[in-house]
Design a protein around this nucleic acid. Structure first.
Length: 203
DNA sequence: TTTTCAAGCTTGTCATCGCC
DNA sequence: GGCGATGACAAGCTTGAAAA
C-alpha cells in the first residue's frame, strides 16, 4: 500500500480549506488536490466522497444537488472549524509543500533508474549485435553510413513525437486551467533529469 | 442533419491496511 | 477494535467526433 499522504483528520481539514474559496463538486476537489500536489498525488474518488459525506453528517459542509452534479459548500460551522484550526492548517500546508518536494525527488530517482536501465539494455543490445555480426565479406562504408543515418533519423523522429505530445498535453492542461506554477516546476525538474540522463547515454 | 459510439466525467460502494 | 485513508471498480450520464 502507498504511504499515506494525510495524517488522521488532515484530509478532512484540507477539504474544508478548499471549500473556503467557494462551493465545489467532488471531482473539482480531486483535481484541486492533484493540482496542489503538482500532479504527484491524486486522491481517488473513494477517498474524497466518504470524507465529504462525513463532513456533511457533521454539519460542516452543505450538499446541494445540481442535476446530476453534487456541489459541496462550507457551512458556518465549517468556517468556525477552519478558524479554530488555522494553526493546524498552516502546519498542514507546510507538510504538503514538503511532500511535493519529496515526491518530485522520488520521481527524479525513478527517471534516473529507468535511464540507467535503458543504458544497460542498449549496451547489452549493442554487444549482442556485435557478437552476432557474422563477417559476410567486406561491408561497404556507404552501407554503414546509411544505417547510422537511418538510426539517427529514427531517434530524431522519436524526440519530435515526444515534444509534440508534451506540448499538446500542456495546451490541454492550460485550457483546463490546470497549469499551476508548481506543475510547471515539476515538469521542468523531470525534463532536466531526463535530459541529463540522455546526455549520459550519448556520451 | 441525425445517429452512433467511444471516451471522459461524476458519484458511489467495497475491501484492505495502518494508526490511535 | 474503531476510525481514517486508500485504491479498485462499477454504473449512469454527458460530450464530442465520426459515420451514414
Amino acid at each position: 500500500m502507498m504511504a499515506q499522504v494525510f495524517a488522521h483528520g488532515q484530509l478532512r481539514l484540507y477539504l474544508l480549506s478548499l471549500l473556503e474559496g467557494g462551493p465545489r463538486h467532488g471531482y473539482e476537489l480531486i483535481t484541486a488536490l492533484q493540482d496542489r500536489f503538482g500532479g504527484t498525488y491524486r486522491p481517488s474518488a473513494g477517498t474524497i466522497y466518504p470524507r465529504l459525506a462525513r463532513l456533511e453528517e457533521e454539519g460542516l459542509v452543505r450538499r446541494t444537488e445540481e442535476g446530476r452534479k453534487t456541489t459541496y459548500a462550507l457551512t458556518d460551522a465549517g468556517r468556525a472549524e477552519l478558524a479554530a484550526r488555522s494553526d493546524d492548517l498552516a502546519f498542514l500546508e507546510e507538510g504538503i509543500a514538503e511532500t511535493v518536494r519529496d515526491r518530485a525527488e522520488h520521481l527524479r530517482a525513478d527517471v534516473r533508474g529507468s535511464m540507467s536501465g535503458l543504458r544497460a539494455d542498449l549496451a547489452a543490445a549493442a554487444q549482442q549485435a556485435r557478437a552476432a555480426a557474422v563477417p559476410r565479406g567486406p561491408t561497404p562504408a556507404d552501407e554503414m553510413r546509411q544505417a547510422a543515418h537511418a538510426r539517427r533519423m529514427e531517434a530524431e523522429a522519436m524526440v519530435q513525437r515526444f515534444r509534440d505530445e508534451v506540448r499538446a498535453d500542456l495546451r490541454r492542461a492550460d485550457a483546463a486551467g490546470q497549469l499551476s506554477q508548481l506543475t510547471v516546476d515539476t515538469v521542468r525538474t523531470v525534463l532536466d533529469t531526463a535530459l541529463t540522463a540522455v546526455r549520459g547515454t550519448l556520451r
